[in-house]
């Protein structure tokens, strides 16, 4: 069990949150919480001890890109690794997410192997930094 990560999964579709949560459990991440958009995620991030954020982009309320910007603008949360897991496939959107400071971008539909690979890559680059 890789218990060192407290992960917050943000997606407006409960089915997708369950899928990601189950896959993360399979990958050994036991501490996984959920939020349904940026507005509910941000207070959780500010009050909790999360150290990894997985977020969708297109959500009612606060979308994922805005959540990413707010996280990067926050003094305490600013350096948190953020993985965007979304169906948004336009090239300029990916560029915009990178400019906003995203650490990884996974396109839906995705595979368990891709999710694992991206999380491992982000954590490896963090460890090396």
């Amino acid at each position: 069990m890789q218990q060192n990560l407290n992960i917050l999964v943000v997606d407006d579709f409960s089915t997708m949150r369950r899928i990601i949560k189950n896959l993360l459990h399979d990958l050994g991440y036991a501490s996984v919480s959920e939020a349904d958009d940026g507005n509910t995620a941000l207070p959780l991030l500010k009050s909790g001890n999360f150290n990894f954020l997985i977020t969708d982009w297109n959500m009612p309320g606060m979308p994922g890109l805005e959540l990413l910007k707010q996280v990067r603008a926050d003094a305490r949360l600013g350096s948190m690794p953020v993985l965007m897991l979304t169906a948004e496939a336009k090239r300029d959107q990916i560029v915009e997410a990178v400019q906003a400071g995203v650490n990884g971008y996974v396109i839906k539909p995705f595979t368990a192997a891709t999710l694992k690979e991206k999380i491992d890559k982000i954590m490896a680059s963090r460890a090396a930094a």
Partner: peptide, 14 residues
């Protein structure tokens, strides 16, 4: 595990 992942269609179609 694959059955679980397949349910991702609900998010995309939604």
């Amino acid at each position: 595990s694959e059955v679980l992942l397949t349910q991702g269609y609900q998010d995309l179609s939604g």
